[in-house]
């Protein structure tokens, strides 16, 4: 089973990389960019076949390694 983990910075956490991206977009002349936040995508391939079990296992992986929950949130998408 394939799953995608999306890791984003919590709101309120300073994101200097996002700010640099926003600045660069403005520098290229893209008007109306009101914010940019960067994050990570991790695609996993797991032997499990049960979507609920996969979701539970990936949540544990996020809590223990994939995300730092002091500053990051994560979402899990089961891709089938």
């Amino acid at each position: 089973m394939k799953a995608r983990v999306i890791i984003t910075l919590k709101s309120g956490v300073l994101d200097p990389q996002g700010q640099a991206i926003e600045g660069a977009l403005k520098g290229l002349g893209f008007d109306g960019v009101e914010g940019a936040r960067q994050g990570k995508v991790i695609d996993l391939v797991l032997a499990d076949t049960d979507a609920d079990a996969v979701r539970t296992r990936i949540a544990a992986m996020c809590d223990r390694l994939l995300a730092n929950t002091v500053i990051e949130n994560y979402t899990i998408d089961i891709l089938g």
Binding site: L14, P16, Q17, N68, V70
Partner: peptide, 16 residues
């Protein structure tokens, strides 16, 4: 900090 032995986190330097 990553091991949870100290509070907080070290993020990218503000000036990158």
């Amino acid at each position: 900090t990553e091991a949870g032995l100290l509070p907080g986190v070290l993020m990218r330097n503000a000036n990158l």
